[in-house]
Design a protein around this nucleic acid. Structure first.
Lengths: 269, 269
DNA sequence: GGGTGTGAACTACTTCACAGCT
DNA sequence: AGCTGTGAAGTAGTTCACACCC
């Protein structure tokens, strides 16, 4: 029970964002956090929509690849095609950063890269801890300094006594009980949960106790965390089930087409 | 310049959804596919919003857990709390399935489970192929029959000659070149790409050639696929960068509070 | 001509609030 | 009295379309 009437627009307890996302919908399931500070803080300039933030990360990757191949400028048309969005959306997204394009020409790749990195807070390092060194945790730990640097893995945790002290990807595994202490000492800012679902909430609590600011949760549970901690989840089961839904929908539609031949009337099953 | 006027609402080329939500995320980032058949097909009943579909999968998990613990009915308040959403949203989501609750009482757990499963197309099995048996692929293959059954892994592929023929999780690895043939033979409907980014597009093409209907892409690239193939991506780098953005935003806000003391004027960096 | 930047229109999603069933 | 189901209102995100600049 949550019950909080008369709290219009207030942010309640459990927030949880999606990957994909929403996105990972992709996307389309975004956190209830007031990203648009507009109402919250009228002084501050318009905040960047959450959906745009996710895409900025994609643009950044595409731009980096382009820079490596020696490109110095891009048009919104080119960049948007490479990023899989339409050009209007791209331009609007970039406009949140300010006006850094040249009309009639396009954008300078290096300038854009710099601005996106700054906006996403990538000018600073974010230390990562991985909890749960099973199959997935192993994979994550071995990424060894996550994507494009900037996200060094600096702590590993597990429950299994046989794993404690064993180096994985060059870093020894510590016990779950050490999470608060070690995270605080090493100033971990992002905790990645790759444990079985039963352990996830307790791990989450310990990460929070250790002062972690963000959590990326691979365990299939809804985590409860204080509002100042940003939680995002990556949920394989949900992704597969969404795909399953689309398969089913497609099948239905085909049936529907036949139904239409049937006098244009389709009976709801 | 007119491009395609009078094509309002038409779906363009590259679609890509997020995990997230929204997307992942975050990732409020949903596909441009006309899920709401409303305009596309006025005959058909209102389709379920993409965002709701992602949540239905979560409700299903929560309900299954509740059923295991012997619960027979739930109220929207209880279920929504457990799923981390508010009750209005939950009720709206469930209403897309039809009216299966009892006013004054709540929902019968088993009935709801059945309806959600049917809606998500989980009454049918969806065979999965995992491509790229590296760290992540290994982890995925060992999941051995994905979440709650219904998603059996029935083919594995890699490029590495040392891996070909080696059984992983009880299933021998085949070569990438075999993808179209094997997928067709075994009637694979979901392909999971866990390869390095450079290989991903070619793998995607082969999966499509093999008649795969959906792709879950873990490689950090934007895939190009025909419109009848549903692609979702799970992008670790993007997730981390979104978290990074929120850390930065939070830091800014604190600075902002100080800034306000400074005459209410905050200079944009 | 070519391409950005952006208000305005539109679409999708969320939340409110209450009628109506049990 | 309690809780669902849902129109209506509100908010977030997308797309259009064109002014403006190079």
């Amino acid at each position: 029970m949550v019950a909080q009437r008369g709290q219009r627009g207030r942010r309640g307890a459990a927030r949880q964002a999606d990957t994909p996302d929403a996105d990972n919908a992709p996307t389309a399931e975004m956190p209830a956090v007031p990203v648009n500070g507009a109402a919250a803080d009228p002084v501050r300039a318009k905040a960047i929509p959450e959906a745009a933030v996710a895409r900025l990360a994609v643009y950044l990757r595409v731009l980096s690849a382009m820079a490596e191949q020696g490109a110095t400028t891009v048009s919104s048309e080119e960049l948007s095609a490479a990023a899989g969005v339409n050009s209007a959306k791209l331009r609007k997204d970039l406009s949140y950063l300010g006006s850094y394009g040249t009309r009639g020409v396009g954008y300078e790749v290096s300038v854009l890269v710099g601005h996106i990195e700054r906006t996403l807070g990538l000018t600073r390092k974010h230390k990562v801890a991985v909890v749960g060194i099973g199959n997935l945790g192993h994979a994550l730990a071995n990424y060894g300094g996550f994507p494009g640097r900037g996200f060094p893995v600096e702590a590993l945790f597990d429950l299994d006594p046989d794993l404690i002290g064993v180096p994985v990807g060059g870093l020894p595994v510590s016990h779950l009980d050490e999470i608060p202490k070690v995270c605080a000492e090493r100033e971990i800012s992002i905790g990645v949960i790759a444990t079985p679902p039963t352990a996830a909430q307790s791990v989450c609590d310990r990460l929070v106790a250790g002062g972690v600011q963000c959590i990326l949760n691979f365990a299939p549970v809804v985590l409860q965390a204080p509002p100042h901690v940003e939680v995002r989840k990556v949920d394989l089961a949900v992704e597969l089930q969404i795909l399953s839904f689309h398969v089913a929908r497609r099948a239905d539609e085909e049936a529907g087409v036949n139904g239409v031949a049937n006098n244009g009337m389709v009976v709801r099953s």
